[in-house]
Design a protein around this nucleic acid. Structure first.
Lengths: 355, 355
DNA sequence: ACAAGTCTTGAGAACGCTCTCAAGTTGCGC
DNA sequence: GCGCAACTTGAGAGCGTTCTCAAGACTTGT
């Protein structure tokens, strides 16, 4: 009885409305030059039949695929990934990306690529050939990978790079890293802190450099020192612990740390606990990322909120709006914000005892 | 100089190998009945040219689209979503889904749908028409939504439902909720706890019921009471706090709580702190989800690890392997595990003072 | 060695849409 | 009113695959 319902095609709509395929196509795509009366008639037929154009067919004939591809980092195995989790990057990205895409009739697909693999080009090339996306969004560390950006440039696919100022083509977006670090540092200085350390991310990430710059600038503005107050981690927990220990060992008078990731901040928090330092009484702590985790630590962490979803949304819009030969070197900055929680407090009147 | 490279099509490969399109197609799809010698020749041409079939074209002509669509819950706004975050569901899902899909030459797309919207059917219908996926994966609460399952059944699209035993078609997958609750409860009982409470999820989720069942069964097996030890929340923080307060008010001798989500467990932890109860000395706590958050609370929480990635991976495999008229009512259970951390301890010798 | 398969290969249509281009309509200035 | 420029509509080709079906090459049994 209930026969398998055949897909409604543009032809069905054309018949229903008594016009040609072409006219329906024009109405669907908001083409110009269709008389209002006819347009209404066709639109009515579309609504009646519940017609939605097939993405695949659109891609086949038209010049666009209506697909934006987001490239994300992939860890080698499931277990690895779970261990390393602690950021909601992907969630945020999807949220900003998918909603923005669908607002414009596009679709977002996610590809997981291992930057360190020898096959990056082949893997990515295969994805590009299969999907033929209209645009690609690169997140760190892929946005810094010349192999990838070159490949995209060679294929003539517009792309947006988030968090990188490595040379090369593509729209660039930053999440206000320099400003954010400056903001965090300034806030700590206002609270009376004089020795404010930074646990930075690895040097191959542009954003690590920006954050260091913002921190230095804020310190310089207030005549505060930066010597011996910088440690570099890899965004992971262990490296954060090492860095925190080194900083505390080297600076008995340290009262504030800015960590370049939530994971490293969590590690610093743990190290402080180990050493009997109370956060925030003895040591103030500010982290970057503001993932859900830091709202539930003890104390909850003051953090820089990176507007990931908004940034990806902007990237999508740029890629979609991009006319074929538009200016390819736009630089867009989305501002980050400081979310104050309980891990920051006025500097202690005197240096805490570090037995 | 660098001309825009034209896409490599099956026709190019055919010419390069000196065979017909059809033969190339056969080789690409691992068709039978191609002589090894010819197959090698064609494969060589494919490799030389770096040919990858266009997904859109495959969809156009063939019967498959090579797309698996995952339906996820969508909160109304960006801000809402961020506030409610605290689970890495989507990350996990993508991880399991994307990797498994690409292993089989498929792609996964994610659609965010608001279950409570009046337009569910229209929204989802549009996505289905546009993408024509070969299979759909439904996560809670969508897996319980008859509007959605009926729509899929009517369209004849195979689908997998995760965490639901609501009647209707589709492959069903569970993450061992009954067993997991039983496991957690039993473990607490082994630690000497006699009054073990459960903060359950909302009744409209099948998994809430399963967890209650598992908890009851474990209690019954050991002759422990369950009266007055059940509260229902909505998985969110606030509801967890309310539930924890109610349980503690009502049961002065309560020494253990199982919470049906990390958020609710975090709330219970906070309520315990408010009341001067030490976790785990005075109160043991086990949560469901095991999202990254609970590794960094103070103390880190013992939690049931739901194998989301693995479950989605299984779902994908089922959908892909599914022959057109295969058995449509498979039920698959992936076992959850208990990850012991510092929020569980032997029951206190005497009931803690609850001033 | 011959009929009756089975294997291998290819030709051509079809998928659903947009593109290009041509034809028919309408509007406007003189 | 006429000619030229719009604007409006439609016809047909083409996108890159796979499908169906037919033709040729090779087996096998007797």
């Amino acid at each position: 009885m209930a026969r398998v319902r055949k897909t409604v095609t543009i032809r069905d709509v054309a018949e229903e409305a008594g016009v040609s395929l072409q006219t329906v196509s024009r109405v669907v795509n908001g083409g110009p030059n269709v008389r209002p009366q006819l347009r209404d008639k066709v639109q009515a037929a579309i609504d009646r039949l519940g017609y939605v154009p097939s993405l695949a067919a659109q891609r086949m004939s038209g010049s666009r695929s209506y697909i934006i591809l987001a490239i994300n980092d992939r860890e080698r195995t499931l277990a690895d990934w779970r261990e390393r989790m602690g950021t909601d990057w992907v969630d945020q990205m999807l949220l900003g990306g998918i909603l923005t895409c669908s607002k414009h009739g596009y679709r977002m697909m996610v590809e997981l690529v291992d930057t360190h693999s020898d096959h990056v080009e082949r893997e990515l090339g295969a994805a590009l050939s299969a999907l033929q996306p209209d645009g690609v969004i690169l997140t760190p560390p892929h946005s810094e990978n010349a192999l990838i950006t070159d490949l995209l440039a060679a294929r003539g696919i517009p792309f947006a790079r988030i968090g990188s100022d490595a040379p090369g083509a593509g729209i660039r977006l930053t999440m206000g890293d320099e400003g954010a670090a400056h903001l965090a540092t300034t806030r700590l200085a206002e609270l009376g802190h004089r020795r404010i350390a930074m646990i930075a991310g690895p040097a191959q990430y542009s954003l690590s450099g920006w954050r260091i710059e913002g921190w230095r600038r804020a310190l310089a503005e207030r005549g505060l020192p930066h010597e011996g107050l910088l440690e570099v981690g890899d965004f992971g927990y262990d490296s954060g612990a090492r860095a925190a220990r080194a900083l505390l060992d080297r600076n008995p008078d340290l009262t504030a740390i800015i960590a370049s990731s939530d994971q490293m901040a969590l590690a610093a928090l743990e190290v402080a606990r180990e050493r009997g330092l109370d956060v925030p009484r003895d040591l103030s702590l500010i982290s970057f990322d503001n993932t859900p985790i830091v709202r539930f630590t003890q104390p909850p962490l003051t953090a820089i909120d990176q507007p990931i979803a908004e940034t990806v949304a902007r990237a999508v819009e740029q890629l979609i709006a991009r006319s074929p030969d538009a200016d390819d070197s736009a630089v867009i900055e989305v501002a980050a914000a400081l979310v104050e929680r309980a891990s920051t407090a006025p500097a202690p009147a005197k240096i805490p005892d570090r037995g």
